[in-house]
Design a protein around this nucleic acid. Structure first.
Lengths: 236, 236
DNA sequence: CGATTGGTTGAGCCCATTCAACGAATGTGG
DNA sequence: CCACATTCGTTGAATGGGCTCAACCAATCG
């Protein structure tokens, strides 16, 4: 697919308000748009970037689903996040000009690329863009600290419940069903993200199924009792 | 103490290169300096800000030691970080214009304040400052993801070893001893940060003591075998 | 078709937790 | 100044939640 003919990619994008252009005026979006590189396809299983790669660009997920993971020297890996449409990949690399994690597509995906040098120039031209970007970075910090809370002080059931509720919310914000989830990642990915083993994830999904909180068929999960899940997270 | 008479606080600050002015020219530092508010004292046990407070300013730790922690609705708390001289407090609040954690001084401390509105204006004037600030935010993301790795895939001994080595590095970067640590936080704080119970922290410190990795006397910790600790973290 | 990857479930084990007792240090008020 | 309370830290014994090891099944793919 070649979108280079289109004048404004972001302008017509359905998830514009969830992405970098959020909160910008039409004119500002147009200016941003002119500096976006072509949309780029990443096939399922392929890496958008790998640990150690030189940092050149930020990527906004256009369609599809990614995971990011960091590798420990001894081979252990930790999944640090899952990214869907509108979310930004590469923020961690600004720090050192090198990517410190791998970003892998969990289904056939497409991303919008913008070189960070260019983006910083735009930030100088549009204080609004810069302001929003500061918020984007801060939001990622808040998200990470939420994961720290989850990993540091929740039990396995609470972790999985929080994970599912969070996924559901993000799907819902994208006008997709907030109760019919298709998990694009393996049980092992989920486990790594939540600090659990894949067997534990599987067991708890089965338990939730038995408790009529979920309907689980492989990677298809339907949330039957949202409130029940919320109760697990908050109350204890 | 009133520093308002001084023309340049940052300019003469010994930890300038570890703080917001890092990488700025002398002129740029001077400009930044003119917009810094007075230094502000926070006594041991006092809060610099609390969850829910409106976000107005960023704070750079000048002297002393802070902890930040988020509160879960059911009362559980998670310590999300410890901040020492040169490190920035309040980055998480940019996202929502509200502080999402408490920042508490663990010893008598002082901070330098700058209103964020002012700071963003300065960022528009000095692309270099903005560039550095982007890196600061990204560095916090990297740090948080490091903690995620720690919480998600390390065992208790590895966590504590990583924590101590990290503290030692940061003290060393501030020209303080990298082996004689004075822990300003309680065992409970450490445990919360590392996802462990205080008893576990205490036990492991004792174990490290027995293994001649550390000398532990209450909150005074001397690292006897840095390499031994590193081995714990990397190898498994 | 066999090979591979992903998922479920069981049995037993172990690391960290829980519960508990005790000691040291600090602060407070009479 | 001492008596007392409080906070912080250490250590022991027993428990249990999640892990390890293992078997098995289903789906996918070359």
């Amino acid at each position: 697919m070649d979108f280079s003919e289109l004048k404004s990619v972001c302008g017509g994008c359905t998830i514009r308000e969830l992405c970098l252009p959020a909160g910008l005026s039409d004119e500002e979006v147009l200016l941003l748009d002119q500096h976006m590189a072509h949309r780029q396809v990443v096939k399922k299983g392929e890496s958008l970037y790998r640990t150690g790669d030189a940092f050149r660009s930020l990527f906004a997920v256009s369609t599809g689903f990614f995971k990011t993971s960091i590798l420990h020297e001894d081979g252990r890996a930790q999944v640090t996040g899952f990214q869907m449409a509108g979310e930004i990949l590469g923020l961690d690399a600004i720090s050192t000009d090198q990517h410190i994690c791998d970003a892998v597509a969990l289904e056939d995906s497409a991303v919008c690329e913008i070189t960070f040098d260019r983006f910083e120039e735009l930030g100088q031209l549009m204080s609004n863009l810069q302001h929003r970007f500061n918020k984007t970075l801060s939001r990622e910090i808040v998200r990470d600290q939420g994961v720290m809370l989850l990993l540091g002080s929740m039990r396995s059931e609470e972790r999985l419940a929080a994970f599912l509720v969070n996924l559901a919310k993000r799907f819902a914000a994208r006008k997709q069903s907030g109760s019919e989830l298709v998990l694009r990642m393996t049980r092992e990915d989920i486990g790594s993200y939540l600090g659990l083993k894949l067997e534990t994830v599987s067991r708890i999904l089965s338990r939730f199924h038995d408790q009529h909180l979920l309907e689980v068929k492989g990677r298809n999960v339907r949330i039957l009792d949202q409130q029940g899940l919320n109760k697990l997270i908050e109350g204890s």
